[in-house]
Design a protein around this nucleic acid. Structure first.
Length: 590
DNA sequence: GCCGTTTTCGGCCCGACTGTTTTCAGTCG
């Protein structure tokens, strides 16, 4: 069984144990184990063979056995037995918001309910309200939560959430008595998809802020409204939480609600090692266990030097960790020893390479694209229209491609182009790993984006990996960039399986750039692999895959994803000057 | 189930809000 499947088995075991009412720490051990396995870059078979699995933090003896068994035999008796002991409908019920394992257990035991349908019928018949601990109100809420569960469970593209979030945070900042307002949560961490939105506000008049927030026109439902927190739902099911805190608690709250949960757990453990208890309200004496009122009122801060989020890291003897890196991976052990490398900025980019015109499936002409790129202050623009095999995208054949190359050359020479143009092509990687044009044609271009567009299904991981590496290894004078490595379309199409470690190795061997496709639906290669890749010496290019001038803005999403992968400006080809890029394309230093 | 220069056993992050309760359990993040 491959790594991804084993990760889902471990996650499912966690869910099943939860439904059985097992020790919550045991449940978490499986969740942690799944995450530890998932973020392991090395090939699982190597790690098992070399007996290194047990040294991965979060994977102990029991998990080593289970993972090894799953990997080698595709089966695990423990898992099969567990699955057989829990009605499948109970797992489905977990999708209902505000309906967790305890309540599921209760309705299952009291009324024999074992599916969402049965639960709905029971609620409609008023049977749920009769159970101890439930009432009329919770029964009504349950029915509406069942009806909306699909929309509520949906994640949302970071890019789409951005257009909802920015006007709200702007509005919050303009309110009287609001000192600070920020978007926190996975949005701030730049996760490719976002489950819900978190706003953190510093104000001495929380009531007024809550009122403004919950009464906005786009709010469909107010699901909670308390003294310091309220929750609303927007159309499409997106939930947004607002927290209002006093100004002096703002850095703690901002850090806390930026997460990730895993990062916070590590930070709190670190605080405890120093004798402090850490929460969204501050750093307190861990031994002060007197009862306290909501909002941490009455507690004395053990550390009162924290005025900014950065101070919080300093208090815990850490270098400042930017939000994008707070995923609970290795950022804390890194920040313990050394400053975090300087963050990549959108303004570091001096041009982009993977772009389409209306010669293939873009919507704008070459010159319109060039003008839009120049307006962004860029020094160069690469044109990479589709190749002929991408018939559905009106791919260019040899004749049309060479004509486009000629046009680009003459625009550059005559000085009529608003910035330097590079002539490229997004060349299809065919099923057998060959490229869609002959070497003779390819050698006339400045660079290539090589991508898989067809025959994505029905290939094993090994076959797909071989196919892509063959393409990377194809001898050309022209430099190659590997386009959207896994073909994923976020929330719509799963990535095809490919051995990322092998691709990274090949990229180093053949001097191939791996792109960060900055289209908000792709963000491919995934940020989780970039630290390993750059450490191995891979160079990237942040490529908007623009099909229209406004798509150049996708570079903003690409830069944030790059930051999540610890990518620095020195790893990014399109942060180089025009001369630097020219020399790279001519085979200069990579 | 994991983990360990105070520990190989006994911990395991912390708090808000809701609904059902007269003091709390469940869920969520």
């Amino acid at each position: 069984m491959d790594k991804a499947s084993i990760v889902s088995v471990l996650e499912e075991i966690g869910v099943l144990l939860e439904l059985k009412g097992e020790n919550p720490f045991k449940v978490r051990a499986y969740q942690n184990g799944a995450r530890a396995l998932e973020s392991m870059d090395d090939a699982l078979s190597d790690v098992i063979e070399e007996d290194r699995l047990g040294s991965v933090k979060g994977i102990g003896k029991a998990l080593v056995d289970k993972i090894t068994t799953l990997h080698q035999t595709d089966n695990l008796a423990y898992y099969d037995d567990l699955k057989a002991s829990v009605a499948p409908g109970l797992v489905e019920m977990l999708e209902i918001p505000n309906f967790g394992p305890k309540k599921i257990k209760k309705v299952h035991e009291a009324l024999g309910i074992d599916s969402v349908d049965a639960l709905r019928s029971a609620a409609e018949a008023g049977k749920i309200a009769e159970l101890a601990g439930f009432g009329k109100k919770s029964e009504e809420k349950l029915l509406s939560d069942i009806a909306n569960r699909e929309a509520y469970a949906q994640r949302h593209l970071w890019w789409n959430v951005r257009s909802i979030a920015l006007p709200i945070v702007d509005g919050l900042r303009k309110l009287p008595d609001v000192d600070r307002a920020e978007i926190a949560g996975s949005y701030r961490r730049g996760k490719e998809t976002v489950g819900d939105l978190d706003f953190i506000v510093a104000s001495s008049k929380p009531g007024l802020v809550m009122e403004w927030f919950t009464s906005r026109a786009e709010v469909l439902e107010v699901s909670a409204k308390g003294e310091t927190k309220s929750s609303v739902r927007f159309e499409g099911g997106l939930q947004a939480d607002l927290r209002v805190v006093p100004l002096d608690r703002f850095p703690f709250a901002l850090h806390h609600f930026t997460g990730s949960k895993e990062h916070n757990v590590m930070m709190r453990q670190r605080a405890l090692e120093r004798g402090w208890s850490m929460s969204e309200w501050g750093l307190f004496d861990a031994n002060d266990d007197a009862a306290h009122t909501a909002g941490g009122e009455g507690r004395i801060l053990a550390v009162d030097t924290v005025k900014t989020e950065g101070d919080l890291f300093k208090a815990l003897d850490l270098h400042v960790i930017p939000p994008e890196l707070r995923e609970g991976r290795d950022e804390i052990s890194f920040a313990e020893n050394a400053p975090i490398p300087e963050r990549l900025q959108v303004t570091d980019l001096r041009g982009v390479f993977h772009n389409h015109t209306n010669a293939s499936d873009g919507s704008a002409t070459l010159l319109e694209m060039a003008e839009a790129a120049a307006a962004k202050g860029w020094e160069y623009l690469g044109i990479a229209d589709h190749s002929k095999a991408s018939f559905q995208a009106n791919g260019l054949d040899e004749k049309r491609l060479l004509k486009q190359v000629e046009t680009i050359r003459s625009l550059n020479e005559s000085g009529t182009a608003p910035l330097h143009l590079f002539a490229g092509s997004e060349v299809d990687i065919l099923r057998d790993g060959s490229l869609d044009f002959s070497k003779e044609i390819l050698d006339q271009l400045d660079y290539l984006v090589i991508s898989v567009h067809a025959s994505m299904t029905g290939m094993s991981e090994n076959e797909m990996t071989d196919r892509i590496i063959r393409a990377m290894a194809t001898p050309t004078k022209t430099r190659k960039m590997l386009g959207h490595l896994t073909g994923r379309i976020l929330l719509r199409r799963e990535p095809y399986a490919v051995n990322v470690s092998a691709i990274i190795e090949a990229a180093v061997e053949y001097g191939v750039v791996i792109e960060i496709n900055a289209n908000p639906s792709r963000l491919d290669m995934d940020w989780r692999h970039w630290k390993t890749a750059t450490e191995a010496g891979v160079l990237t290019s942040i490529n908007p895959d623009a099909h229209a001038p406004e798509h150049f803005d996708f570079t903003e999403a690409g830069v944030i994803i790059a930051r999540k992968g610890w990518v620095e400006a020195k790893h990014v080809l399109n942060s180089r000057s025009l001369e630097g890029v020219k020399s790279f394309f001519q085979g200069g230093d990579s």
